[in-house]
Design a protein around this nucleic acid. Structure first.
Lengths: 247, 247
DNA sequence: CGCTGCATTGAAATATCTCAATCAATGTGG
DNA sequence: CCACATTGATTGAGATATTTCAATGCAGCG
């Protein structure tokens, strides 16, 4: 049941059993990518896409000086490079944060799925649209929040997304991001990330453990600080896929 | 030929005549949205999507204090809210920069198109993936560039995109963005945008005219400053849609 | 003429970065 | 078990970028 999480995390659509099986059968293998290893480099050609089974993937763009901007984080259930199916080359690099299990699906197989199961095709489209919605919220975060709030916002998003796939108790964020990673995702220096974490800790919002995971002591405080509104994740009953447009 | 530009700007795919006609026929009306008028408000429900025929649209998210973060800019040929087809409500607001002509396509019509023309469906998907790729580059811009370079980067992107649809001579950017708009797109204050423009002018890169349009005197200088790499726009032969995955 | 909306400027306050150093935990080889 | 290297976290202090506040300029317009 490698794709089980995909159902939970990304498809606000319900898939039929047949569709689930078809998706499952499209997986040609699963493999482990070690922590901090790269899956794809910006500009590389792709003939397959990958579903995260367990672990965490980072998507990023490097600048001239080798500084890195993280543009997305993928958790179990996410397709990490589904857009590579329609685009010849990727515009960003992808790597594993920790040892991560990936399910590989060749693009030829996706083509068949898309042809045979229009409803599944729409679900895949929807999944990439979710990515775009998250990207937009990241733009907001970087453009309108100060360092501390940016970190808080990212934390809120990750809690929320983990909640969708049932992996978290909202008091504990089990993703081992370094302060450097937070810095690269939030457009600040690691040193400033450190000071922001210190402040978040002093305010009693979170506690960062040595392994990188977080204890969340005041989620509503975090949300307020970050002006976090979960709607963009389209997770509740409110903002789901429009059934009307299916027929 | 309202959709003509869509072919140029967004579809790196070639559409058949039949597909073009079908798309054309899906347009139920065109109308003008006055400058600074809103088309959709964040959270609103949608049962139609809109293609920009002429003019410019801004997509944005407001924060609590009413400050605005622009998350995307749409020019002629762009679908401005195609993702609304698959998502019930929009996660951001959309408004016109200047008086803008929009072609309206009901979601029911899109459903029919998608059912009848799988190839066109893929083209539409591709179009939304292009949005996502641009979003990622915006994240990079906000996260890794300083104010002046952010503005330069945005200018480079707009020149490039206008070039695709054949509307520009690369010496002139005919989009009447206020300094405030640049500020809202680049995550800085209008005052700082003003100072950044002053510096760009003093360096001999651009000249901002009173109507908001720009004269570009040194595009390669701008590109270098902004670390601009056009590949993410998937405009050249290099990074186009993967024909392989079509069959 | 006196609005109005944007652009421009100056000066002080704040946020963030840079550089340089120290610390704490962990792992390694002897 | 110790000495040492490594990695990430932490701190301080000065430099730089950006914001804030307050004011002025400037063009179009009724």
């Amino acid at each position: 049941m490698k794709t089980e999480l995909f159902l939970k995390g990304r498809l606000r659509h319900d898939l039929s059993n047949e569709e689930e099986d078809a998706l499952e059968n499209a997986v040609v293998r699963t493999f482990v990518l070690q922590g901090r290893q790269r899956l794809v480099r910006r500009g590389e050609r792709l003939d397959r896409s990958h579903l995260v089974v367990s672990g965490t993937m980072l998507r990023f763009i490097d600048n001239r000086k080798g500084e890195r901007q993280i543009v997305g984080i993928n958790i179990p259930g996410d397709f990490v490079d589904l857009h590579g199916y329609a685009m010849k080359r990727l515009d960003h690099s992808i790597g594993a944060l920790v040892p991560t299990v990936l399910a590989e699906i060749p693009h030829t197989a996706i083509s068949k799925l898309v042809e045979q199961y229009p409803h599944l095709a729409r679900a895949l489209w929807f999944s990439t649209l979710l990515d775009a919605a998250m990207h937009r919220e990241w733009i907001f975060r970087l453009g309108r929040l100060h360092a501390e709030a940016r970190i808080a916002h990212l934390i809120c998003e990750l809690i929320e997304r983990l909640q969708f796939i049932g992996t978290v108790d909202r008091k504990h964020l089990p993703i081992a991001l370094l302060q450097k990673d937070y810095a690269e995702a939030c457009g600040i220096t690691p040193i400033h990330a450190n000071r922001s974490f210190k402040s978040l800790k002093e305010r009693g919002f979170i506690l960062r453990r040595r392994d990188g995971c977080l204890e969340i002591s005041n989620e509503s405080g975090l949300r307020k600080l970050a002006e976090f509104e979960r709607a963009y994740l389209y997770g509740s009953g409110e903002l789901v896929l429009d059934k009307l447009s299916e027929q």
